[in-house]
Design a protein around this nucleic acid. Structure first.
Length: 349
DNA sequence: TACTCGTGGGG
DNA sequence: TCCCCAAGAGT
């Protein structure tokens, strides 16, 4: 066990990646930076997070600054990164840390776990990386590395407790943060989901999965259900002065708090036109644009048909929402699916 | 426990 | 083209 730890930390000292939120091995980084990066990195790749992390730090250098920000500004800065509940909880967490903790993050796993948006993984990661406490975060990378190292063939998520226990046993008490990051780096660069580079792995001599040849097939997972398709309309309302109608989505749920081109309900099966059009923000003669906008979310695929009308303020009742010029759309937090709708409308108008 | 919740890239 | 996956959390 001691050899396993030593081998991993030696490898990390020689091969670790330099990332914006990281300190040099052995040094303690800024907890705010660690926390911010860990939230952004949830289910999101390092390459994607990079520019968002830099932009957030430039605009909100401290957790106090972030706590004093407007939620809409945080969502706007987060747009395109996905899983927007992370942004809402990020802001909520910053406020709690600023007001209840005097701007300093709790330095224990249990304390961190109480904060919004911080679950078991992130609490352990921040605890180990930012405060050098002997916590053992387990993310997707570490699940893969450990399941291969011990040739664990029980499928996820049943095998999680066993992985957690093995990981905790292996964690070195002196450098838990570097060790956790070493395992994650290993999983990201060598012990990859497909075609792992076992030949250059520092743990190749210890890996049961490699010995038995099953490493590339681990961890085993249950099959995921197929993604259903939903359909809906987007209602493109253009006023005489060229401005279009958008509206803010409800605070919770899918794309919560972001702006959208008003739309119908998204249905598994297309309802009759009359019903779908009745969900428009106003009564009008709609013209259907050719083609559809396709977008795949985590658990369903969406096909949107865009309907267009002109709006005359003198002859129609004012609909709910906000009027904005096309250029002005840049001031609103628009999810990627809505950017696609806008692009499609402008192209086919 | 099992869903919900985004997006972009790689094979 | 389609499926998988990426430093998961909340309900």
């Amino acid at each position: 066990m001691k050899t396993l730890r030593r081998t991993m930390l030696d490898w990390y000292d020689r091969h670790h990646r330099t990332l914006p939120w990281r300190s040099e091995p052995g040094d303690l980084p800024n907890p705010y930076h660690v926390w911010l990066s860990e939230i952004m990195l949830q289910q999101t790749t390092v390459i994607t997070v990079g520019p968002y992390f830099a932009a957030f730090l430039a605009r909100w250098p401290t957790v106090i600054d972030l706590a004093n920000a407007e939620l809409d500004d945080v969502l706007h800065a987060w747009q395109g990164l996905g899983y927007y509940a992370r942004a809402r909880n990020l802001h909520k967490c910053a406020k709690v840390v600023a007001t209840d903790y005097d701007g300093r993050f709790p330095d224990t796993e249990d304390g961190l776990l109480k904060l919004p948006g911080i679950g078991p993984y992130t609490a352990a990661a921040v605890s180990a990386i930012a405060f050098n406490r002997p916590s053992s975060p387990v993310d997707g990378n570490i699940e893969r590395v450990i399941s291969r190292l011990f040739a664990l063939e029980t499928p996820l998520p049943d095998v999680k407790p066993e992985i957690k226990e093995k990981t905790a046993t292996l964690t070195p008490p002196d450098r838990p943060g570097d060790y956790a990051q070493a395992l994650m780096d290993l999983g990201a660069t060598i012990c990859t989901p497909r075609n792992p580079a076992c030949a250059i792995c520092p743990w190749q001599a210890f890996c049961e999965g490699r010995k038995t040849g099953i490493a590339p097939d681990l961890p085993k997972k249950r099959k995921k259900p197929a993604k259903p398709t939903r359909v809906g309309y987007a209602f493109w309302v253009q006023r005489d002065d060229g401005k279009i109608l958008i509206r803010r989505r409800p605070e919770t749920g899918l794309l919560g708090g972001l702006y959208e081109v008003p739309g119908s309900v998204w249905r598994a099966i297309k309802a009759p036109d009359a019903i779908m059009r009745d969900e428009a923000p106003l009564k009008a003669d709609w013209r259907e644009l050719g083609g559809t906008v396709g977008h795949t979310f985590t658990h369903f695929h969406l096909d949107i048909t865009v309907l267009v009308t002109r709006f005359n303020a003198n002859t129609a009742a004012e609909p709910d929402g906000v009027w904005t010029s096309i250029d002005g759309l840049a001031d609103f937090a628009l999810p990627t699916v809505m950017k696609k709708v806008v692009r499609h409308a402008l192209k086919h108008l």
